[in-house]
């Protein structure tokens, strides 16, 4: 009997060691950019409860395009940039719901670059995996259900990321082990992903697309949920589109939606000159503002819409 118990203990030990190894390797091999996004989320979770008045959400256009340090240093307003790479509209909804678990912001800004895109029925990847930094609650369950449906194997890849990211071993380098920006870095920048790199771009052909599109019913349903949360919490909701090199196809749909739902929409393409955005100095790449551009946009939004 003793021998059998020792054998069973050996099996359990092997299983535990294997699971630990799998989790460790998964942590090591998940994409570097995912780790950074996760650090930003962790930074938000370390903020004192009910300490933030203004919050920003949306894709990398928001994350890299709104410098929350400006609100702190120039306006003495507490704020946090809870944007992140790849925030589709249902990811934004998840982040907003998560934000309300600990904060009661008075004003929320949502970047609309990918407002018509919803993650659903997809395989796990970096776009989904970074939400691991958000603990389990109803909003996250709904988000994961959108992404994975009832496919338990996809859930498996979410909780055991090695399954998804194991091929990354071939691109592993010393920088993979240390994310470019740590949690402390994002606490200092209040969630904003700073960069003073300058890439000269030409904005002359950018703006609202000539042919405008309507939102999908699914996107509208997500937007409705965002509006509903803000209304219930008495939060002022402002949608905006940050300038980039390209044509935005949902400016009219967004304007119409904002009017119908009693909130504000600002298409910043229309205010490029007023804001003072200079293609030669204010972008870090063709899609994202740098520190200089982000500061200008942040000041414009605070001065005019708060």
């Amino acid at each position: 009997m003793k021998k059998i118990l020792i054998r069973i203990a050996g099996c359990v030990f092997t299983a535990v060691l294997s699971i630990l190894g799998v989790l460790l390797m998964g942590r090591l091999l998940n994409p570097e950019s995912t780790s950074e996004s996760m650090n930003s989320i962790k930074a938000f979770h370390s903020m004192e409860e009910n300490s933030i008045d203004v919050m920003f959400f949306g894709s990398s256009h928001a994350w890299k395009g709104i410098d929350t340090r400006v609100l702190r240093d120039e306006y003495n307003i507490s704020s946090f940039n809870y944007g992140g790479n790849w925030q589709r509209i249902n990811t934004t909804l998840l982040f907003i719901r998560d934000a309300y678990r600990t904060q009661t912001p008075k004003v929320i800004f949502v970047d609309t670059y990918v407002a018509n895109e919803k993650l659903q029925n997809c395989n796990m990847d970096g776009q989904i995996y970074y939400t691991r930094a958000i603990s389990d609650f109803y909003g996250k369950r709904e988000f994961l259900n959108d992404c994975f449906g009832n496919d338990w194997k996809k859930y498996g890849t979410y909780y055991f990321p090695l399954v998804m990211f194991h091929d990354n071993w071939a691109v592993l380098n010393k920088d993979s082990l240390i994310p470019y920006r740590s949690k402390a870095g994002y606490i200092e920048s209040l969630g904003y992903d700073p960069s003073n790199e300058i890439v000269s771009i030409d904005l002359s052909d950018s703006g609202a697309a000539d042919v405008q599109k309507d939102f999908d019913a699914e996107a509208i349903a997500e937007l409705d949920k965002i509006v509903d949360i803000c209304n219930k919490n008495g939060t002022k909701l402002i949608f905006y589109t940050c300038p980039y090199v390209g044509r935005y196809e949902y400016a009219d749909a967004m304007q119409k939606y904002a009017e119908e739902n009693g909130c504000t929409y600002v298409n910043l393409f229309e205010y490029v000159d007023e804001i003072g955005i200079d293609g030669a100095t204010d972008f870090r790449d063709s899609q994202h503002l740098n520190d200089s551009g982000a500061a200008k946009v942040t000041r414009f939004l605070v001065d005019n819409y708060m």
Binding site: M124, K154, L162, V163, H166
Partner: peptide, 12 residues
Amino acid sequence: VFLLTFGKYGPA
């Protein structure tokens, strides 16, 4: 762990 790290498998 070696097999799961270096094997070719998974949704991708």
